[in-house]
Design a protein around this nucleic acid. Structure first.
Length: 461
RNA sequence: CGGAGUGUAGCGCAGUCUGGUAGCGCACCUGCUUCGGGAGCAGGGGGUCGGAGGUUCGAAUCCUCUCACUCCGACCA
């Protein structure tokens, strides 16, 4: 029996040694017809491509294909958080009501908070966010200004009892969130922490192939003074966005920037916030109209990240203080920074699809390459596929091998639907001439190459 | 939370008005023929019709209650 390593979305996706990912032995329950309840394209495609299954209103199981995407997203989020100096931990899903009474949010949150009672009649809740808990952890250990700055994050399931969940995992009740929390001695330090996360977010979304536009936002129930939403443009987005066209051409900050350099971070922040960008609620028609005509972009957008600086809102209420250089207690300056990986999975599809299905950007694709064996059982095609599979895996590519005994048409349609970036089509006709066909899912371009050439092209150098 | 709907096989649906013992397409299983863009023929398996009560000789169908889900609006990572 093959023991697959159990991996939670909170952990890295390790390279799993084991049997090849043969479709005949995999679990990829695709749907041929559109499920009637799915209104938007990402929801439809996630159901059809066997990524998710609805278990209750706004609650989904992540099937293997969807789970892989989620893990790829998490890996990028995690890398960029770490790069920016944030430190990963893991807080529980279930929280005590007392913690929320301290901050005063137990009542504020209202019906959106799922409340439960344990056997001892203690009030508990399913965490919608973790400001209270992280503040409680912080104050339990940190006493001195010398231990600042500090930025802690986790990737954990959250629950918000939405009045009307919809659009699949785009607006679900249970959702995965990366939430980071920064602690600083003073406002200037906190501002730097905010900028670091701002820059990390620019890089995170860019790495997934998304154009994310930072938009100054309302602070809402989290509270505070400064806040930005990161919105990606997609025709099926929920909200209307107005912005300067420059944003579509801007390059994300490079990997080798110095996150510890306040001036550099502030410079990037200034650059990315100097142009007009607003959602419907904050839209300033006059300012937008003043832009040159060719710079006016109005489009639909999906919020995939939201960052807040809220000062001492929680540290004061919950007495998270450190001793300053003068020995006096100072409430710490805090910020929080959220990204929704589960929503991102859907947003990525909204931004990357066509009539045939999903078109995964390489960085988040569940598999990089799909090998379609057009004639299983034929010694030559079987051998060519096995060989390609082994070599691509060795080259570090994630490969899905379609070894099912089906007609070519069905295989093509399924490959297009699940949207792997590259398809290698191996059939007797091509092999007779020593060729396989390499197809790029996005461009539709096909090339006849020898297996070695195909291997070279797809090895990712 | 207001409004509108829908629950019949894994998925998509018909049957409900007008009660008579459940059907179609896809999927699945078997066989043969096929095989480079979702094959054809033949055969086969699978449903206590969301649940509970009631009316009736008889209920998927009529009545009452209930549960779940979806859509539109207000609200939101």
């Amino acid at each position: 029996m093959l023991h697959q390593q159990v991996v939670s979305p909170i952990l890295d996706l390790p390279k799993q040694p084991g049997l090849p990912m043969r479709l005949s032995r995999y679990f990829l329950p695709i749907l041929r017809e559109d499920p009637k309840e799915a209104e938007i394209v990402s929801h439809r495609l996630m159901l059809r491509a066997g990524m998710i299954r609805q278990e209750s209103a706004g609650i989904y199981a992540w099937l293997p294909m969807g789970y892989r995407v989620l893990q790829k997203i998490n890996a990028i989020v995690r890398e960029e958080q770490n790069r920016a100096g944030a430190i990963e931990l893991l807080m529980p899903v279930i929280q005590s009501a007392d913690l929320w009474r301290e901050s005063g949010r137990y009542d504020d949150f209202g019906k959106e908070m799922l409340r439960i009672c344990d056997r001892h009649d203690r009030d508990m809740l399913f965490g919608p966010t973790n400001e209270e808990m992280i503040t409680e952890i912080f104050r339990g250990y940190v006493r001195s200004y010398k231990d600042l700055p500090l930025n802690l994050y986790h990737i954990q399931w959250k629950f918000r009892d939405e009045v009307r969940p919809r659009f699949g995992v785009m607006r679900s009740r249970e959702f995965l969130m990366k939430d980071a929390y920064s602690f600083d001695l003073d406002v200037a330090g906190a501002r730097h922490s905010y900028n670091r996360m701002f820059v990390a977010y620019l890089r995170t979304f860019a790495r997934m192939g998304l154009k994310a536009i930072p938009i100054r936002a309302d602070t809402g129930p989290i509270g505070g003074d400064l806040s930005h939403e990161f919105i990606i443009l997609a025709s099926t987005g929920e909200s209307e966005v107005f912005c300067h066209g420059d944003y579509l051409a801007m390059e994300p900050p490079a990997a080798d920037i110095d996150f510890d350099d306040p001036a550099q971070m502030q410079g990037i922040f200034d650059d990315w916030t100097s142009r007009y960008a607003a959602t419907e609620e904050m839209h300033d028609k006059a300012a937008f109209e003043a832009l040159p005509d060719n710079a006016k972009v109005s489009a639909r957008g999906i919020e995939v990240g939201h960052i807040f600086f809220f000062g001492t809102k929680y540290s004061q209420a919950m007495k998270a203080v450190v001793s300053g250089p003068d020995g006096k207690d100072i409430p710490v300056q805090m910020g929080s920074y959220g990204i929704g990986p589960s929503r991102l999975a859907a947003a990525l599809i909204e931004a990357n699809h066509d009539e045939s299905g999903i078109i995964w950007p390489d960085a988040v694709a569940p598999f990089h390459v799909g090998i379609a064996n057009l004639k299983t059982g034929d010694a030559a095609t079987d051998a060519a596929c096995e060989s390609l599979y082994a070599k691509l895996e060795k080259a570090g590519r994630d490969v899905l091998y379609d070894d099912r005994d089906e007609r070519p048409g069905a295989k093509f349609a399924r490959m297009d639907l699940i949207g792997l970036p590259w398809q290698v089509i191996v059939g007797p006709k091509g092999l007779a001439e020593g060729k396989v066909e390499v197809k790029n899912r996005r461009s539709g371009e096909r090339e006849l190459l020898s297996p070695d050439e195909a291997l070279n092209k797809l090895s990712g150098t």
